[in-house]
């Protein structure tokens, strides 16, 4: 245990805090998908981690398509044009996966009034199926006879290995906070997450459709009696979760630069943790939970060593829930006051 590593100098403290905020912002964006679906349907979309994972591949494949496979180190400015295309691709890919999930894994069960537990099992099944399908993409390509054309995308024999983005984005120092260098990449990640959060929050609070979402979350039968099309509301909720996961996937690839078919699992669990920690069903809670989780695990890693990062994260979850069982902000999406 080395508290000096964290608190010894402001430089270290700022560095670990900022690093935590960056990951926390990504957790928060993914957490939105869990929390919104829970708010509307009271079910955990366990497969949301795969929605994110498909987004990360969309980013890497966009770079392979538009740049090629040659390794390169680019500044954020140079990568920006492709990065923006990749962002759109990731948002579309993640949204598509989320919508298919809703249609295939949930809607038939909801229409039959199946217990929530059944939907959870369906979600876990869908999660494994999606993850393994990505790991088997070389086989699919072979069956379709396109494995030669798509060799750069499926990486034969290594479909289950780490898939690296050919372009590494080099962070550049923008300014200094007490000796700690704030980079352009870190700043973009945190700002992008905050902007998306703010936009979504306003959408849910201020728009007619957002009011419809809150109505379904608070009382589905009453919402139907007001003329809200609940099937459409559920669909849009999954769509929004997917779009946010796509943004998270792009930011993640900016920072990490590599992914694999199992990349969604730990991030998904952490994002779910962030959602529960902030108060499941609560949008602002997802943001707070994500940032708190990111910072705490970063501090934990500084004090006890990096291998303790996840232990700290989940012990924190248990401690917070013991004190505040409904999460930091508590109230659900629907019940949040305007």
């Amino acid at each position: 245990m080395d508290f000096g590593a964290l608190f010894g100098s402001f430089d270290n403290f700022a560095s670990f805090t900022m690093g935590g905020l960056v990951f926390g912002a990504i957790y928060a964006l993914i957490a939105l998908g869990y929390t919104m679906v829970y708010g509307v349907l009271q079910l955990i979309n366990f497969a949301h981690s795969e929605v994110f994972m498909y987004g990360t591949f969309a980013v890497a494949w966009t770079f392979v398509l538009l740049h090629g496979t040659g390794d390169a180190n680019w500044s954020l400015g140079k990568a920006l044009p492709i990065l923006l295309v990749a962002l759109v691709a990731a948002m579309l890919a993640s949204a598509a996966i989320a919508l298919v999930l809703e249609r295939v894994a949930y809607r038939p069960l909801i229409n039959k009034n199946a217990p929530k537990l059944i939907a959870l099992i369906s979600a876990i099944g869908a999660s494994f199926a999606l993850s393994e399908a990505m790991g088997l993409r070389d086989r699919f390509a072979k069956w379709l006879g396109v494995d030669d054309n798509l060799a750069n995308y499926v990486s034969p024999k290594k479909a289950r290995d780490v898939y690296t983005n050919p372009v590494t984005i080099e962070p550049h120092k923008l300014f200094e906070v007490g000796g700690y260098n704030v980079t352009d990449v870190d700043l973009v990640i945190v700002l992008a997450a905050l902007v998306m959060m703010f936009a979504l929050d306003q959408f849910v609070r201020r728009t007619r459709f957002g009011r419809g979402i809150r109505a379904v979350a608070q009382d589905p039968e009453s919402a139907a009696l007001m003329g809200v099309n609940s099937t459409r509301v559920v669909q849009v909720t999954f769509l929004i979760g997917g779009l946010m996961a796509g943004v998270a996937a792009t930011l993640y690839m900016m920072k990490i630069g590599a992914t694999r078919q199992s990349a969604g699992f730990l991030l998904g669990v952490k994002a779910f943790t962030a959602a529960v920690m902030g108060g499941i069903g609560n949008l602002r809670g997802a943001l707070l939970g994500g940032l708190v989780l990111g910072v705490m695990e970063s501090w934990g890693a500084a004090i006890w060593g990096n291998e303790w990062r996840d232990v700290v994260a989940f012990i924190l979850l248990v401690l917070i829930l013991l004190v505040r069982p409904s999460g930091l902000l508590g109230e659900a999406l629907g019940k949040a006051r305007a």
Binding site: R211, R214, A215, Q218, D219, E221, S222, A223, A224, L225, M226, G227, V228, N229, S230, T231, E331, G334, K335, A336, R337, A338
Partner: peptide
């Protein structure tokens, strides 16, 4: 479906009121 009936001019004040608890009166 219920929402299409509302569009046609049918509305209901349900048993047990069913107001949206987290919304204001105006909302």
């Amino acid at each position: 479906p219920p929402y299409e009936r509302v569009l046609m001019g049918l509305s209901q004040s349900p048993e047990g009121r069913g107001v949206f608890p987290g919304m204001t009166v105006r909302e």
